[in-house]
Design a binder for these strands. Structure first.
Lengths: 303, 303
DNA sequence: CAAGGACGATAGGATTTCCGTATCGATGAA
DNA sequence: TTCATCGATACGGAAATCCTATCGTCCTTG
């Protein structure tokens, strides 16, 4: 991957926003002819025409317009790279912070937070709600001291202290035909249903657990749509657009429009763990480990 | 934005992933000595060592590790740009993207999503859960087509179509003494309580509404602690660490450990609106406006 | 223990990339 | 009809980046 294309994408963004090669060139601190050349090179590389040149300037084509959102995200992330580079240079640190997955907010987080408050009443604690993938990244970047996330084993240098596990349960729109019968549902009855899934990258342990549960029930889960967060997943179910397998930690929320049903048979569970970076075990992380051992007697070392 | 650094970051990413300068050079289509030079130039520019050279190759330092997640995301999204370009070449449509505040996920989002599905069954729709401040930024940056957010008026170039409003309600830990009496609570009884607040920057309309409601009740709200998301706010209440004023859109969730109680008297409400960028009204935004007008008959123009 | 291989680093010259300037072609406005 | 404006083409130059040759270090192998 040649990141040189990122620069040309920035050029294209400038032209699309200015609607004029000359003004975009001025904004970029260059002259107009080389900017024209760079845009042409980008169009050749992507194989689409991005800008329609008119007598009054340029405006994005349909394809150019469609690419703008992701190019803007790229530009924003390039800025984040730059600011992260500055922070690295400055060696900056953050106050005590933790990450927590949505599904652990109401069962695992409260005891942990109470314990930390008891141990250190004066300390500030920032809680950042995010999914497992983002929590892992935040730990690696040193943005948080520890996390409550769905990891099932150590990921060096990340250390994992399992705290417990939640069963997978079915989330169905209220009024769904499968709810006519009482009691736990056999997983196989979901075979023909549209599943609302989170991408694997968000929480691999949870994703893999539900895929293997479906396979053991004799069918391949088909992602009819993907959403970006656990809450949005439930919202799609509430909208009647599919069913989902979620952890019981999500089920405690009981959002309107969603009915939860236990699953029959051995469908397994997804674990919640305290996670921290073994190579930079901050004092806050050590405190959290101690509190977690006390608050969750079933907690055990993964090692 | 110094794209030279960004390009070298791409080189660094290749080395970090390969663990070997020679293999990374092959992947990048270049030879090993200039790659070494580029990495050294990057390290000099940043003033930190990114790679630890060993006899068997190279691996990232702690600072290098901190860069990898965002660089991987950049690389992944650059690939997405290329694959989206290929799809556009083939004549396919771009997906729709929207943002939605947590508290609107289960009352406002489902009708909107159902309407959009009915209008354009073939289009993909990505929902990104975020708070109002982030939704505004995502709209300004052009990363989403429209949003469901708590804005109470136009913010040029953002246009606002109010869809409805939610009353403020009190969220208290279960077992709280104030719950002993039945019926709505006068707001003044919260005067001595620790409040769990979201920072104003997350949702100014909601923040200002609750501050003015407290002042009208005769006391100044005191933020005993701040959290980063609406869900985390409720989690703190569940943990017994304070009370909160939240919109009734959050109360529909009924998380464990939290009791909601209506408030007596005129405490106002916080609105939910469809928001889009008036200067780049995408086809998806126009579709959402049309669907919203139909799905929410009370919707009216802010202008 | 010596020779060789593997790794990244240094050095010098060649090539590529990107830029500025001059100018062109097309087209609409005055 | 002339002129202005827009993006495109052409060419030369500077800077960036790359090539190959080789080095230095250190571990492995015979």
């Amino acid at each position: 991957m040649d990141f040189r294309i990122l620069r040309r994408m920035g050029h294209f963004l400038a032209v699309a926003e200015e609607g004029h090669f000359g003004r975009a060139a001025a904004r970029l601190g260059m002259s107009q002819p080389p900017l024209t050349a760079q845009i042409q090179a980008l169009e050749a590389e992507l194989g689409v025409r991005l800008l329609e040149r008119t007598r009054k300037g340029a405006r994005p084509t349909r394809e150019g317009e469609a690419l703008l959102p992701i190019l803007r995200r790229l530009a924003e992330e390039a800025k984040q790279v730059e600011s992260l580079a500055r922070e690295l240079r400055a060696g900056r640190h953050a106050p005590m912070a933790m990450a927590c997955v949505t599904s652990a907010l109401f069962d695992y987080l409260p005891p942990l937070v109470r314990g930390l408050r008891a141990a250190a009443p004066d300390s500030a604690l920032a809680v950042r709600e995010m999914d497992t993938a983002d929590a892992v990244e935040a730990l690696r970047r040193g943005e948080v001291d520890f996390a409550l996330a769905r990891l099932d084993r150590d990921r060096p240098p990340l250390r994992v202290l399992p705290l417990g596990s939640d069963a997978l349960v079915a989330a169905l729109p209220e009024g769904h035909a499968l709810l006519a019968t009482a009691g736990p549902l056999p997983l196989a009855v979901l075979a023909g249903e549209a599943l609302v899934l989170l991408p694997r990258s968000i929480s691999p342990a949870y994703f893999d657990r539900q895929v293997s549960a479906c396979r053991e029930a004799g069918f391949e889960p088909v992602a009819m749509r993907e959403v970006g967060s656990a809450m949005a997943q439930l919202a799609f179910v509430a909208a009647g657009l599919g069913v989902a397998l979620v952890s019981s930690g999500m089920a405690v929320l009981r959002p309107p429009g969603v009915a939860f049903r236990a699953l029959a048979g051995p469908v397994g569970s997804v674990g919640v763990a305290l996670v921290w970076d073994g190579e930079r075990e901050t004092e806050a992380a050590r405190a959290a480990i101690a509190v977690a051992r006390e608050a969750f007697p079933a907690a055990g070392d993964a090692a």
